[in-house]
Design a protein around this nucleic acid. Structure first.
Lengths: 185, 185
DNA sequence: TAATGCATGTAATCGGTTACATGATTCA
DNA sequence: TGAATCATGTAACCGATTACATGCATTA
């Protein structure tokens, strides 16, 4: 998804500043499946203004640059609905980890072990983080949006599955590698 | 991973043409976690030649352009080892599906159902495809590389987990959506 | 006869990252 | 005192996609 659509999506849920939009992709609800940088968000927001898809209100602040709060117009809301109406591509789990581990044989065994541990930790903490947001929302008593619930559940499940797989296969991989190097040498 | 490194990786496993490298990302062993287009592969290959990381041998063919078979040099092999020695970033499952389903409430229920079905099918067939390659390799009697084995196993497991999750949550999502729309209207 | 596979490459364009520039406040 | 948070923006650069250009052989 291009950053313009991503901004449209965040603003669709309520007014926000560029800074807050960035946070939505860092800690917020989109954090585990989309990403955007300041260098793409601010230009996208300017374009949204220029295209009449959003309006901005400046809130003065002392010492800091004026806070610019963006809000979608009807045009913007329509554009968002058009965007989510498009046929999406198939999802692919583009992974540097898999790329590296594919060549495990070419790496020192302790480096392979360290890599796996790093990714177990990384996947697990992602899953835990999403899961804690879920329990939080559940206990807050607020109404639960079925779409968001499914999306966060998916995150927990898939990242958990990834971590579990690595935990189960760490040993076999390492012993497989040492057997191979013994045979080769 | 940048396409230059990706080409280095394919060529590390043996000589290949640009066309064959493309196939490695379409049906080959890298298909489920990396991607590259002709428009990036051919320039990357030229750069590899220019940098002395690969040499190319032209094989004449009738009617078609000469087939150019690339092979890594020692320099190229060293560059590849340097590349896989770098610290990678954390993996993120960037997903258009999750983005769309997050806004399920904004879509017609039948469209949501169709989307989910599409992705169940897509994830399942990815998992099946990788799995069939695994059993093929297993029954071929050839030696199994532990790294590649782990990587393909990961693909099967994670795509399967994704499909399973959607199958289990399709109904609840849809009924959640209809309840909500009844309450709102 | 139309589409697909084989086979290589270029060029326009696009979208995004990274780094830079600025600067007050608060927390450790 | 140094780092992090809040807050906005620009510009250089890079990498990749898309479309284009060519053209034979095979398969449906």
């Amino acid at each position: 998804m291009d950053v313009k659509t991503l901004c449209l999506a965040v603003l669709f849920q309520g007014e926000a500043t560029g800074y807050e939009i960035k946070k939505a992709f860092e800690e917020g609800p989109f954090a585990h499946f989309q990403r955007a940088s300041f260098g793409s968000i601010y230009p996208a927001l300017s374009k949204l203004l220029a295209d009449g898809m959003a309006v901005a209100e400046a809130h003065e602040q002392d010492g800091r640059p004026d806070k610019k709060v963006y809000r979608l117009t009807q045009t913007g809301r329509a554009a968002f609905h058009r965007a989510i109406g498009q046929e999406p591509e198939h999802d692919q789990f583009r992974s540097d980890m898999l790329f590296l581990l594919y060549f495990a044989r070419e790496l020192p065994p302790d480096r392979v072990a360290a890599l796996i541990d790093r990714y177990i930790e990384s996947y697990s903490s992602q899953a835990d983080h999403i899961d804690s947001c879920r329990t939080e929302r559940l206990t807050s008593g607020a109404e639960i949006d079925p779409g968001r619930w499914l999306v966060s559940g998916f995150g927990v499940e898939v990242y958990r599955a990834a971590a579990d797989y690595l935990i189960r296969n760490r040993g076999p991989l390492l012993s497989g590698l040492s057997k191979h190097s013994q045979a080769a040498e």
